[in-house]
Design a protein around this nucleic acid. Sequence first.
DNA 1: AAATCAATCGCTCTTATGGGGTATTTTCAG
DNA 2: CTGAAAATACCCCATAAGAGCGATTGATTT
Lengths: 208, 208
Amino acid sequence: MLTDTIHIAIVEDDNEIRQTLQLILDGSAGFACKFAFADAESAIASIPDLPVDVVLMDIDLPGKSGIEATRELRKRIGEIDFIMLTVQSDDDSIFESLCAGASGYLLKDTNPADLLVHIKEVHEGGSPMSSQIARRIINSFRIIDNPLSDRETEVLKLLSQGLNYKDVAETMFLSPHTVKTHIKNIYSKLHVNNRAEAIYKAIKQKLI
Amino acid sequence: MLTDTIHIAIVEDDNEIRQTLQLILDGSAGFACKFAFADAESAIASIPDLPVDVVLMDIDLPGKSGIEATRELRKRIGEIDFIMLTVQSDDDSIFESLCAGASGYLLKDTNPADLLVHIKEVHEGGSPMSSQIARRIINSFRIIDNPLSDRETEVLKLLSQGLNYKDVAETMFLSPHTVKTHIKNIYSKLHVNNRAEAIYKAIKQKLI
DNA sequence: AAATCAATCGCTCTTATGGGGTATTTTCAG
DNA sequence: CTGAAAATACCCCATAAGAGCGATTGATTT
């Protein structure tokens, strides 16, 4: 944007919340909130042509969801930041929102003062979210349990880099036969019978 | 823990930081910090037997890293929360830390008052992290761009399930030749030359 | 002391894979 | 309407991969 003012748009179906929010935001120094939409469709149609820095997006909208709207708007305009607002945070909508391109994820009961801080954070390249929501995201990084031995994991990592038996053997200073044995054991432990599926499963289970 | 007091341990090699931190934490109401270690090895040896709720773990330790220490301690004790402390945040150490089981990730310049708040948050099931760090994590959910066509993506998904040429062809009602052509195009687009690497790259780029 | 598991090395055989081509039809955007 | 991209189909050939066998050594655990 041209000025220091952060230009905000709101997408929220509840009239009272939307109007109140708009009043508060537009009345705060350094912030402008001239645009507010009650549904995803009108937001998708208008926002691409508006001078907006940050969009506050309600997730539970009638018709198309806020996540859908974020996804579609993101495709067309990369420079806008989206902060999802929701009453309750379930894992699925958190991850869907993030994949759709949301930069922040806040609960609706966030008080206006904090909201302003968070909007500023987003605009400065941060990703505000409550500590609880962060934990859920972090938990998605956790490793469930690793049936593979250290050597097997090493082998699998090299395989995922595209190396073949011989190359893995050379890299690990092993006989190709040993590598083959490791691979067979990997397949057996992961209950797969080829490389492709082994790597897929291993990544999904965060083994490599 | 038995009481309302949150019991903290520090792992930090810088003597001054460690001692200062311990003094501040142990002197704060509701917090106790009776244990501090200067290296990963002694922390790993002692912490499993100590009554500790939250560990503040420096990442850059001499010898074994704080990430390693977290990983090993996590394996043995599930109930302790780890907050990583670091001077600078590079993407790799953030993700490694999360995978190792860290619950929070803070910069060392966090002021003591905030640190206490964050320790409390972790202990209550949250995951405190700066807005900037959160953004990096969130960005890891983004899809960069998908060079693959729909059919190619379909083929790759089936390959990742362990299907071979023939099976993919049957599943998609195609000639095996066509499947082969798709696979060759996939390899070319992803700049790989075998299935393993293709699947690895595709998953890392969230194409499948 | 026994048992288990990881890590190492070896063999044979069939089949799948990947690289090198070529070519037609359909679809979609400019 | 036209041209590019996608989707479809086919050939040959050398090699890698996977299945099915067996075997020794050294830790760790019980």
